[in-house]
């Protein structure tokens, strides 16, 4: 069975760019699910099989940190890795994200090579 990814970003442009970067990096997924904030992401994780989540931090309604906090309370999705993709890559913020279960971070702007370097070992 192939792998599925969930892209979480309030910018539809950025979700398209991340999807394009995955393809350019040679990383293929069977399904690419998209969510515009943490609330939509949790709804998708309740319904779909997702192998990894790539999430922004600065989003309306439920930001990336709150999403991680809520996800950590739900047994059925605790084990799904989350990689942060954000302009917010200060040590404090990424430290908080990692404490809540994030497996790493990619800083915007990024290149397909950077996506491959960070995401490749996680798949």
């Amino acid at each position: 069975m192939g792998k599925n990814v969930l892209l979480v970003d309030d910018s539809s442009t950025m979700r398209k760019i991340v999807g394009r970067s995955l393809r350019q990096a040679g990383i293929e997924f069977d399904n690419i699910f998209e969510a515009a904030d943490g609330i939509e992401a949790l709804e998708i994780l309740e319904k779909e099989k997702v192998d990894i989540v790539l999430s922004d931090i600065n989003m309306p309604n439920m930001d990336g940190i709150s999403f991680l906090r809520e996800k950590a309370t739900r047994d059925n999705m605790k084990g799904i890795p989350v990689l942060m993709i954000s302009t917010e890559t200060g040590d404090d913020i990424i430290g908080e994200a990692k404490a809540l279960g994030a497996v790493g971070a990619i800083k915007k702007p990024f290149t397909p090579d950077k996506v491959n370097e960070v995401l490749g070992p996680l798949l």
Partner: peptide, 25 residues
């Protein structure tokens, strides 16, 4: 999104610890 990326990177330039400046959407 371009403004967001510019703002995030400017925040990194200006901020001492990442928590002393907040960015709007």
């Amino acid at each position: 999104e371009l403004a967001n990326m510019l703002g995030g990177n400017v925040k990194t330039i200006l901020s001492e610890n990442g928590r002393d400046i907040e960015l709007s959407l």
